[in-house]
C-alpha cells in the first residue's frame, strides 16, 4: 500500500479557454494535516471537487485513498468525508437524526450507529441537545458536529472547506482540537481556510495562485523561504502576484 493518501500529477481542469486548475502536482501523506490555501477564484474549489470525485479533470492523474479519480470516483466517495461551511447538516432535523441519516448513507449497521452516536454525543458534550433541532444550536457547535458526522464512517481522508468561517475564537480552537484528534487516529485532513493563523496548525501548506500551486511546504519553511514573519505575509506576498481577475 502507498503511504500517500492523495497523489496528484499534472492535474488540470479547463473550462473553455479558462484554465481553472493549471497543471498542479502534490502528494499528501497519510495522517497529515494539509492546508490548501489560495485567494478567492484561484482554483481551490475546482481542485477540491476533482479530488472528491465530483468533477472530471481535463488532463493529468490523481488518486485519492488509492483510487483513480477518473474511473473509481464511486470508491473515492465511500472512502472520504466532506464538510463545508455552506452545506453540512439538515437544520430541520435533530442532532441524532442527522447522525443517523449520514451514517445510514454510508451503510453502517444500525446497531453500530447507535453505539457510535452515543459515544460521539458524549465526546462533543451534546447529550442534552441530542433531540434538539440543529437550527437551534450555536454555529460553533454545528460545525463541530458537522465535522464529527463527516468522519463518522471512518474515512481515510476528510475534506474541509472553510470549516471555521465566522466561528468564535474559542470554538475555533476546539474545532482544531477535533482535527488533531482525527489526524492522530490516522485520518488525513485536507483543509481550506481564510484564517492565516490556522495555516500554522497544518503540517504542510500549499498556496494556489491563478490555478497553479505557487508554494508548498511546512509553515516554518515557507516563512523562511519568503523571509516572512507570519503565514499572513507569505500569503499576501504570493497572492498579490495574481493576475487573474475572473
Amino acid at each position: 500500500m502507498n503511504k500517500n493518501a492523495i497523489v496528484v500529477n499534472n492535474l488540470s481542469k479547463q473550462f473553455g479557454q479558462f484554465k481553472a486548475v493549471d497543471d498542479i502536482s502534490f502528494e499528501v501523506a497519510k495522517g497529515e494535516i494539509f492546508g490548501f490555501l489560495g485567494a478567492n477564484g484561484a482554483g481551490k474549489t475546482t481542485a477540491m471537487k476533482m479530488l472528491c470525485g465530483l468533477s472530471m479533470p481535463t488532463s493529468g492523474q490523481a488518486s485519492v485513498a488509492g483510487f483513480d479519480v477518473y474511473k473509481e470516483n464511486e470508491s473515492i466517495k465511500k472512502n472520504i468525508g466532506y464538510m463545508s461551511q455552506k452545506f453540512s447538516l439538515y437544520e430541520d432535523l435533530t442532532v441524532r437524526e442527522n447522525i443517523k441519516f449520514y451514517a445510514g448513507i454510508y451503510g453502517i449497521a444500525p446497531q453500530k450507529i447507535k453505539e457510535k452516536t452515543n459515544q460521539l454525543l458524549q465526546q462533543l458534550v451534546l447529550e442534552k441537545e441530542a433531540d434538539m433541532l440543529v437550527s437551534q444550536l450555536p454555529l460553533g457547535w454545528k460545525q463541530k458536529l458537522a465535522f464529527s458526522v463527516a468522519i463518522f464512517h471512518e474515512p481515510q481522508i476528510v475534506f474541509l472547506d472553510e470549516p471555521t468561517g465566522g466561528v468564535d475564537p474559542i470554538t475555533r480552537r476546539e474545532f482544531w482540537n477535533l482535527i488533531y484528534d482525527a489526524a492522530a487516529n490516522g485520518i488525513t485532513i485536507f483543509v481550506t481556510t481564510h484564517y492565516m493563523d490556522e495555516a500554522e496548525y497544518c503540517n504542510r501548506v500549499s498556496i494556489m495562485v491563478d490555478g497553479k500551486i505557487e508554494a508548498l511546504d511546512s509553515p516554518g519553511n515557507l516563512k523562511k523561504t519568503f523571509n516572512a514573519k507570519s503565514m499572513d505575509e507569505v500569503f499576501l506576498h504570493l497572492a498579490r502576484k495574481a493576475k487573474r481577475i475572473e
Binding site: 478567492n40 468561517g165 465566522g166 497572492a239 498579490r240
Partner: peptide, 13 residues
C-alpha cells in the same frame, strides 16, 4: 454587515 466574511486575505486587505 460582514463585508469580508469568506473573502481571502488579499481582498480583505
Amino acid at each position: 454587515d460582514e463585508p469580508t466574511t469568506g473573502v481571502d486575505a488579499v481582498s480583505r486587505k
